[in-house]
């Protein structure tokens, strides 16, 4: 699925990374606990979260993710967007809740198959 399709499905605003909207991502994970993302995620291109602080972007960087989606109408700070731009991470913001956002993405084919044994 292209990042552009994620934005459309979730009615999300693209806050940065417009040039990356045609990048393909194969899977996603949803979590507000960054330690769990660091523990259990592998090769997932998208992080869906309602947590807002710079460590969300750093966690995505550590995991080589391409896109962070903020749910529940959460908005990242300018500092976070700068960090994301610097490391080529697209940032989207949606008013969907976590459960709804993950459900829509999963139902549309963005699975979690890359999460080996997970």
């Amino acid at each position: 699925m292209k990042i552009r399709e994620i934005a459309t499905l979730l009615g999300a605003d693209v806050l940065c990374g417009e040039s990356q909207l045609d990048e393909e991502v194969q899977s996603a994970c949803g979590s507000d606990m960054m330690s769990d993302v660091l523990a259990f995620v592998k090769d997932q291109g998208v992080l869906v979260t309602g947590l807002v602080n710079p460590q969300v972007i750093r966690t995505a960087m550590m995991m080589d993710m391409h896109c962070v989606v903020f749910v529940r109408s959460k908005r990242p700070t300018p500092e976070m967007l700068e960090l994301a731009k610097e490391h080529h991470i697209a940032v989207l913001a949606s008013c969907s809740r976590m459960y709804e956002a993950c459900g829509k993405l999963y139902a549309s084919g963005l699975g979690n198959e890359a999460c080996a044994n997970g």
């Binding site: 330690s35 660091l38 947590l51 460590q55």
Partner: peptide, 9 residues
């Protein structure tokens, strides 16, 4: 509340 402290570090 900042996303850490889950005992996974």
């Amino acid at each position: 509340a900042l996303g850490f402290g889950a005992g996974m570090g």
